[in-house]
Design a protein around this nucleic acid. Sequence first.
DNA 1: CTGAGTGCAAACAGTTTGCATTACT
DNA 2: AGTAATGCAAACTGTTTGCACTCAG
Lengths: 151, 151
Amino acid sequence: MNVDRERWVTRVEETLRRSGHHRSSARPAVVRALAEAAAPLTVLELETRIRLVGRVGRASIYHALELLCRHALAYRLDCGDGQARYLAAHADGPVRHYLACGRCGAMVELATARLDRAIGREADRLGVAIDARPLVLHGVCAQCRPVHPAR
Amino acid sequence: MNVDRERWVTRVEETLRRSGHHRSSARPAVVRALAEAAAPLTVLELETRIRLVGRVGRASIYHALELLCRHALAYRLDCGDGQARYLAAHADGPVRHYLACGRCGAMVELATARLDRAIGREADRLGVAIDARPLVLHGVCAQCRPVHPAR
DNA sequence: CTGAGTGCAAACAGTTTGCATTACT
DNA sequence: AGTAATGCAAACTGTTTGCACTCAG
């Protein structure tokens, strides 16, 4: 929702400002692109979107993403295709998990509750701590399935 | 267990033989190293172990692993540290999931049942297919936890 | 003899880093 | 003025590929 995105942008700017970071051109562009993204984006996708507005060096994008992740303002996802994807870390609610469709490449959002509960129980049982970070499962989305398109 | 490993090696050799693949020096070394591994191994780790016995080119290791994965005889795991890890795909029982300890790097095996059930339900609900492949969660293992070392 | 395997070296892709320049505060 | 950000270019890392040579079937 748009409100969430606004709120996230605000939180990012405030967090970084309080940490003594300047507010210049490149990073805000990355933040804006991440905020408007419907799904996790690769660095190249981010760059493409940002280039629609202005020129930004790739190194700056990496710098910005690293900063965001370090402050837990964004997540870096590993989708298994050799390039990282980045996602805004909205503060409200639990982390979202995704299904990466091996056919069309879509990232389908999964319901978290059940999964998180199972993960939490397993963590308790083993006495380990499991990070609350987005999970990427692999499979085939509903649209791409050969039979039973829905169900 | 050793029986499983033996069985896996046999299955690998038979599967590849039936697919018209030769049986030469490098690949069997990779298979042996994978069979004896207690946890998923990186290519470098594999290479190191293989070098204890004889010389094998890195390209051959990659070739062999690609072949194994293509035949679903091994899994390639993404642990988020930029290098793939490989794991023998034992035929018996469900896939194993792991916790990668962010502190010591250990790969702790998780119980699959609960997790798989949650994943299966979510797949049904959304009408998607989710691959049965090993999952890598991130966190801190029991030994590395600051408080509550066990529990 | 044929087709697969091997392994060196070179190519590649994504990411990271060095550093001089620019810009914010 | 002082400190962080930018962005080019170069370095790095893990992985893939081209290819000549070797070897199993």
